[in-house]
């Protein structure tokens, strides 16, 4: 019987939750729920990183953890898994399991998310907010702030958004900015678009269903 399925540490980077590699997932989930319950105020609004160490977690388990964090009003969850997973080629399909930060919130002016992998935001990115990823960025919402994909120079990185209207869009060392002038764009319906580098410049194209 393992007594501690989860271990919570505060570091300079924030709060990290370590998952025991052999403990059963249901035990981990209930221990984490207890910890969240006991220190609800502490965790509310916090962004944590979940380190699963040598343990492999299934997509269902991941969703369960995300749901739990949402129930307790955390603002973000980051998953850190086995180190070798982080070294997958940047050419792989862009939502790479294990090195993707999933954030379910609206990023407001002054907020900034950086991550060494890919970032998925389920919500809007408002003007004045920044999203910076070493890999790709996907926004399931309106992207109006500043976004930088391939922040360490990966020119294959891409930016995807349900509505792509960034103040400024950077991929690797390329910068594209929104057109000057006063324009209130009101799109009647969301038109998913994708930005990538083609022949040295940033190109934005629609995505067929």
């Amino acid at each position: 019987m393992i007594r501690q399925g989860v271990l919570i540490r505060g570091t300079n980077e924030g709060i990290t939750v370590y998952l025991h590699e052999e403990c059963e997932f249901v035990v981990i989930l209930s221990e984490l729920r207890d910890k969240f319950t006991n220190a609800h105020d502490f965790f509310r609004g916090a962004s944590i990183s979940i380190n699963s160490g040598e343990r492999s977690i299934t997509p269902e388990e991941k969703m369960a953890l995300i749901d739990l964090c949402q129930d307790y009003e955390l603002s973000g969850v980051e998953f850190v898994t086995r180190p070798e997973v982080q070294n997958v080629s940047q050419k792989d399909p862009w939502i790479t399991e294990g090195e993707t930060l999933i954030l379910k919130k609206t990023l407001r002016s002054g907020q900034r998310v950086t991550y060494k992998g890919n970032i998925i935001i389920i919500g809007d990115v408002n003007p004045g907010a920044q999203v910076i990823a070493v890999g790709d960025v996907a926004v399931m919402g309106n992207l109006r702030g500043v976004v930088h994909a391939g922040a360490q120079g990966n020119t294959d990185a891409e930016v995807f958004a349900l509505a792509l209207q960034p103040t400024q869009l950077r991929i690797a060392h390329c910068i594209a900015r929104s057109p000057d002038g006063f324009s209130v764009k009101k799109k009647r319906r969301m038109e998913p678009e994708k930005a990538s580098i083609k022949e040295g410049i940033i190109v934005i194209e629609g995505i067929e269903d």
Binding site: G110, V146, T167, Q168, I175, R177, S178, D180, G181
Partner: peptide
Amino acid sequence: IGLRNLDVVMGLENRIV
């Protein structure tokens, strides 16, 4: 700092790196 606005009033917000 933290509440910048001059860039918006000048219409330069999309040029900031």
